[in-house]
Computed example of a mutant assay.
Amino acid sequence: MTWLEPTAAGLGVLCLFFLIRQSMWAWPVGIAMTSLYALIFFDVRLYSDFGLQLIFCVLQAYGWWFWLSHRDKAEADSQAPVIWLGLRKLLPWLAVGAVGALILGLVMDRFTDADLPYWDAMTTSFSLVAQFMLARKYLENWLVWIGVDVVAIGVYAYKGLLLTSGLYALFLVMCIWGFWQWRRDSRAEPEAAPAQ
């Protein structure tokens, strides 16, 4: 499995770069990356992360479809717009992440031999929230990803996945860049953004 982690990490950096640039290439690269990470996480018994990668494959396809279907078809190189949620609309997303983390952590703790079940569940639940928000082009997805990355760096370092931990440190920096870039590219303030 030694070749899998560096390959998946490289695809992860490329995927995130494409996402920051709002390029459609992010989605096929993301599908390849999540497939490799599913194998890696199953091998080290991080079952929540394993399941997360399988769901990410589906969410990658959804994001690809959403971005394509919500762009201005009259303009060849147009993109779906970035949407600001604002704090009031962000709070329910965070609540879903917290409840999901608690439920998944309890299940993993009681019914599996998972290591770090609650921390693993936290990164899983909030990653699902962030990924769906990313697919819908909600600006605040980057803030949720920043929180996930901070926790993931510690979890993966503890599990001896040092390359992946380093990758998440790079992801953290790239997510800060992504938030700044998407905010600059967005057309509306949170109060004026249309609901999607």
Rank of each mutant, 00 (worst) to 15 (best):
S165P: 07
G105V: 00
L163W: 08
V148H: 09
T123D: 02
L68W: 14
G97P: 05
P190W: 04
L104K: 10
L85D: 08
L128P: 09
W142D: 05
E191P: 04
Y138E: 07
V99R: 07
R183N: 13
G63H: 09
A80S: 12
L106C: 11
W182D: 03
W142M: 04
W119E: 00
V151D: 01
I83Y: 14
K137Q: 15
R184Q: 14
C175H: 13
T112G: 13
K89P: 10
F171I: 01
F171E: 01
K73E: 13
E189S: 12
S125R: 01
V129I: 09
M133Q: 14
P117Y: 02
W67P: 08
L139D: 09
N141I: 02
D149W: 01
L85R: 13
L116Q: 09
A121Q: 06
M108H: 11
V148A: 05
F111S: 09
T123S: 07
Y62F: 15
A80R: 06
M122Q: 06
M122E: 02
L104S: 15
S69W: 10
K89E: 10
S78Y: 11
R187Q: 14
A169G: 15
M133R: 10
A152R: 07
L104V: 13
L102T: 13
S125K: 01
Y168T: 00
I103E: 06
W119Q: 03
D109Q: 14
A76C: 03
P81W: 00
A152K: 09
Q79V: 11
F179A: 09
A169Y: 07
W182C: 02
K73M: 12
A135V: 03
P92E: 05
V99H: 12
L85T: 04
I103V: 15
V173I: 15
L102K: 12
W182K: 04
I83M: 11
R88L: 10
P81C: 03
F179C: 08
G160C: 00
L94P: 09
A169D: 04
W64R: 05
F126D: 00
W84I: 01
L104T: 14
T164R: 08
R187Y: 06
I153L: 02
S165Y: 03
L172Q: 06
L104I: 12
W180N: 11
M174D: 05
W93D: 08
A121F: 04
L172H: 06
D185Q: 15
W64I: 00
W67N: 13
W119H: 02
W65A: 08
G154V: 00
Y156N: 03
P117G: 01
F132D: 00
Q79H: 14
A152H: 08
W177C: 09
V96S: 11
